[in-house]
């Protein structure tokens, strides 16, 4: 079931158009990675969805309600962080949560404790937010965004300021929310590799235009340029037995361009020639490179 639907969203500041015909959907249980370089229009799109900026043309529908016509009802089941986890610095984490809780009908003290547990802030929840690190603020921001049990969660660059451990926790939390509470989640980022581990849908935006909408597996296939790294005991005489072109990385590693289907044959050849093969991995850096080639970088105009 579709929770969020953006149709032909356009936004212009004066004569300058920053978004052109942005159309996408997020279904319940989906985690959509909204990816694009800086200045591509990710945050603008999110602001239009949340009614923070006026839509020039097109429509946003949340739970079947038009954001322009029915803002109050449409926004009721949305949780969001835009740009930064903006909180009141001179209040404690708990006070911040309590203030938000007051604005909804369905939040009791138990729920506040629940999200404090989710945020993992422990005793620090009663410290002033000004004493928090960016990562802690990010966690509190997410707790604040889900406190009213929304069915659409919109997170703008939530991985900013999180350490690898924090990113892993965020991934676990989001997948849990999507799976167990059937939440629809929209996560924006400029970094594909951070999202690839937990998004099931990808939407790429560049210069205000959606250039690709696909599932992650399809994208991987698409951008994969069949670059693999092989680690062997030595690489002497490889040239004679392999037909593919490759680059030497070190005395034991090579980077090879090969189609996925041909890899088993390559392994057989190597073993037959008494090479010891330690590992063979897809070149992640090149996945990012390929993605960048696809988006071609962003020209901010």
């Amino acid at each position: 079931m579709s929770i969020l639907k953006c149709e032909k969203l356009c936004k212009s500041f004066g004569k300058k158009g920053v978004l052109k015909n942005v159309t996408f959907e997020v279904n319940e249980g989906d985690i959509l990675g909204f990816i694009g370089p800086n200045g591509a229009g990710k945050t603008t799109t999110i602001k239009l969805i949340l009614g923070l900026q006026k839509i020039s043309s097109g429509s946003v529908t949340i739970n079947g309600l038009d954001i322009k016509k029915d803002f109050v009802k449409a926004i009721e089941r949305v949780g969001a962080i835009v740009e930064n986890p903006d909180l009141y610095m001179y209040l404690t984490g708990r006070e911040n949560l309590k203030m938000i809780a007051r604005l909804y009908h369905n939040i009791d003290a138990k729920r506040i404790d629940e999200v404090i547990a989710i945020s993992g802030l422990g005793n620090r929840i009663d410290d002033n937010v000004s004493k928090y690190s960016l990562g802690m603020r990010q966690r509190l921001g997410i707790a604040a965004a889900i406190i009213h049990r929304p069915n659409l969660l919109i997170l703008d660059e939530p991985t900013n300021g999180l350490d690898p451990e924090g990113i892993r926790e965020l991934r676990d939390l989001l997948t849990k929310l999507a799976r167990e509470e059937k939440m629809a989640i929209l996560v924006s980022s400029h970094n594909l590799s951070e999202l690839e581990s937990f998004c099931n849908q990808i939407c790429i935006i560049k210069n205000g235009v959606i250039i690709d909408k696909t599932s992650l597996t399809d994208l991987k296939k698409e951008v994969s340029n069949s670059q693999y790294i092989l680690e062997l005991d030595h690489i002497d005489g490889l040239k004679d037995i392999i037909d593919y072109s490759y680059e030497e990385i070190s005395s034991t590693q090579i980077s090879i361009n090969i189609e996925r289907e041909k890899i088993p044959d390559l392994i057989k050849t190597l073993i037959a020639n008494d090479y010891l093969l330690y590992q063979i991995v897809e070149d992640k850096a090149s996945l990012e490179d390929a993605f960048l080639r696809k988006t071609g970088g962003n020209i901010i105009d």
Binding site: K47, L50, G51, L52, F71, V72, K73, I75, E76, V78, A80, V82, E83, N84, D86, L87, Y88, M89, I100, L103, Y104, A144
Partner: peptide, 14 residues
């Protein structure tokens, strides 16, 4: 200036 306006305006109030 603190950006909290966004927090305030995504609540179910006009």
């Amino acid at each position: 200036n603190n950006g909290t306006i966004k927090l305030l305006l995504v609540r179910p109030y006009s």
